[in-house]
């Protein structure tokens, strides 16, 4: 890491620390009633209490589980469907209009449909999360497959490579930067929808914890849950970036 990068890193920590300090100040001065706004000290204590009693762990595990299953289902389906649509220009012209109709549809609009069909169940949550998270992945995959260098397909033809080999050795690696970027976007969508589903269906998870804490006016617990959700989003996204960095090492060489 060079000097400039270190200075930026230090500066960003300073800004974060500044926000916490202001938050503490507002809480101490009681500018907002402590019933609604606990200070960082109380939120931290609630977080530690939740972990030591084990409650928060199980809630966190629940949310991570919903998020992971939905995201993985979205990834598999999104890449598969995106690959089929993206690798044929005829499919693109036929299917693209329907996609344009479905894509801007807010996921919240299909939640009632999902509840009506599947009830307030894990299956409903999985469906809603996967449905919301599939779009970035699928659209990125379509784009990635459509943008494969045609010359490479000619190389594949002159090598008489099988269809399967062309997909796995040419098209997928070529589309991988797009696909991984789509998967990173979907991660956030999956987290948001996990929380929404937990709140709506009362499924075990941080969403449920936050809802119950709010109803009981336990603002410290509420904030502990929110902080944990923020951390979850941050950590998963950093992990995804690291994975991207490793998988796309060849791109670093290109720049």
């Amino acid at each position: 890491m060079n000097r400039a990068a270190i200075i930026w890193r230090v500066a960003s920590f300073a800004v974060a620390a500044g926000f916490v300090a202001i938050w503490q100040l507002i809480a101490n001065l009681k500018l907002v009633s402590p019933v609604f706004l606990p200070g960082p000290d109380r939120a931290w204590a609630a977080l530690m209490r939740g972990f030591s009693s084990g409650d928060l762990w199980s809630k966190l595990a629940g949310t991570l589980e919903h998020m992971a299953y939905g995201w993985l289902a979205a990834s598999i389906a999104g890449i598969a469907i995106g690959a089929i649509i993206g690798s044929s220009s005829r499919m693109r012209t036929y299917v693209a209009p329907s996609l344009e109709f479905l894509r801007p549809l807010p996921v919240s609009a299909i939640i009632p449909v999902a509840i009506a069909m599947l009830g307030l169940t894990q299956a409903m949550a999985l469906f809603v999360i996967a449905f919301g998270a599939i779009w970035p992945i699928m659209l990125a995959t379509i784009h990635g497959f459509a943008a494969v260098e045609p010359r490479l397909y000619e190389v594949a033809r002159s090598l008489q490579m099988s269809r399967l080999a062309v997909i796995f050795k040419i098209a997928l690696p070529s589309a991988s930067p797009d696909i991984l970027a789509g998967m990173r976007l979907s991660l956030t969508v999956a987290l948001i929808l996990s929380v929404v589903c937990e709140i709506l269906a009362g499924l075990d998870g941080l969403g449920h914890w936050v809802l119950l804490s709010a109803r009981a006016f336990r603002s410290a617990d509420l904030f502990a849950g929110v902080i944990l959700l923020g951390l979850t989003g941050y950590v998963t996204s950093v992990a995804m970036s690291l994975a991207e960095h490793r998988l796309l090492a060849w791109q670093a060489a290109q720049r």
Partner: peptide, 19 residues
């Protein structure tokens, strides 16, 4: 196309797998 016939393309940058 068949494997016994190999083609060297002018645009080598596009004909190689960058990954």
């Amino acid at each position: 196309p068949r494997r016994e016939i190999a083609i060297v393309f002018q645009d080598y940058g596009k004909a190689l797998l960058p990954w």
